[in-house]
Amino acid sequence: MKKVFERTKGLSDAHFTFCPGCTHGTIMRLIAEVMDELNIIEDTIGVSPVGCAGFCQDFFTCDFVGAAHGRAQAVGTGIKRSLPDKMVFTYQGDGDIAAIGTQHAIHCAARGEKITSIMVNNAIYGMTGGQMAPTTLEGMKTTTSPYGRDPISVGMPMDFPKIIANIPGAVYVASVSVDSPKNINKAKKAIKKAFQVQQAGLGFALVSVLSTCPTNWGLSPVDSLKWLRENMLPIYELGELKETEEVKSL
């Protein structure tokens, strides 16, 4: 009998500290599997953010550096420039990359830093208790928007990967989701490509992954995936938002 699915060696033996049903774990598995497939676990340095994923150094078997809130890409830039042979990736939530770290994300892309960023978008601040994020949907109830997000006073949700896609230094920008097995496989392909872009030294690559937050959305894990499909997919366009000719020929 053959093992057709097992825990990848890119993941450590530690159990995830996330709430039951949180798809952070799925995304981390995909990254770990990609590192294993490209045989780069020993050569990879990850940068962990602040937020639910702040403990992600415990879950991977590659090296990690912790960054201050929103500064993962600034730290990643320093690592990549001093150790250009290493693979560097940042793992950040939407509050980290698209709120407090917006300036770093935009200028990291503008400089065309040869690092890979994974953005986990669950439309809410998870760890701090479910406050409204820039990515929160219109009308969505959070602890700081108890009557639903009002676009007149706080604006419309920000589609961050599209902003990055407009910057010349970003050569590969993809928006994917982990709500179904089919989308999980597509997400893995996008993450793999983002790492290959870095291996080829082409420029900055960003993969935005739509994720769930069952605890702060107040839904069961199964209903959360359904809510993501029905409400987030129509707002955040999936697919490869930007792919230069060089990336296509990889």
Binding site: K3, F5, E6, H24, P221
Partner: peptide
């Protein structure tokens, strides 16, 4: 049937599948 769907969606990577 060993389709691995359960293992694919498991967010805690808690399922191994043999075929």
């Amino acid at each position: 049937t060993g389709c691995t769907l359960c293992a694919t969606v498991c967010p805690d990577v808690a399922i191994e599948v043999y075929k």
